[in-house]
Amino acid sequence: MEMLARLENTTLSIWLRESGIAFFTSLTLHSIAMAFVIGVNFAIAFRLVRIVPEFELKPFLKFYNLYWLSVVVIFLSGCALLLAYPAKALTNPIFYIKFSLLTIGLIISRWLQNQMQIIKNNEFSRDKYFWVAMISVFIWIGTITTGRFLAYTNSVLLASRFF
């Protein structure tokens, strides 16, 4: 807790917390990038389980540059939000659940990206990829839910108040 208090007293942390624009920009970029990343995953998952009519998956790879750029934005804006209120996130178990789900979701999406590179479109059988797609959908729903619940479940806002 003392370390967290020291962290939130750094100039950068104070600036992120108290300058309205820095925190708001981080929060908004986090939302936009998250919506894009989750949206792409939903689109691919729905194609794999045939909720949407079949379409060629390989050309979809061209969106992955933007996809991974969005992941970088999620990471950087997430770091900024974490640095603004380190104790709020790091003392909340929901944060670790969100982080784990996000990591698993990204590993699955990277695996699916590799599959798209090596497998022909007609070999994407529904049976083979059904569970991967469904797990991916549930993991992303879990990421959204834990992300929202983070704002409501913190027991500590600032560690400095203990010192």
Binding site: M34, A35, F36, G39, F42, I141
Partner: peptide, 24 residues
């Protein structure tokens, strides 16, 4: 409130992942 907020963001992700990609 947070459950409905989560659903709101889910809807937004569906929108951005489909209409947003089509726009791009």
């Amino acid at each position: 409130w947070p459950i409905v907020e989560s659903m709101h963001f889910l809807g937004l992700s569906l929108l951005i992942g489909t209409v947003g990609i089509f726009d791009l």
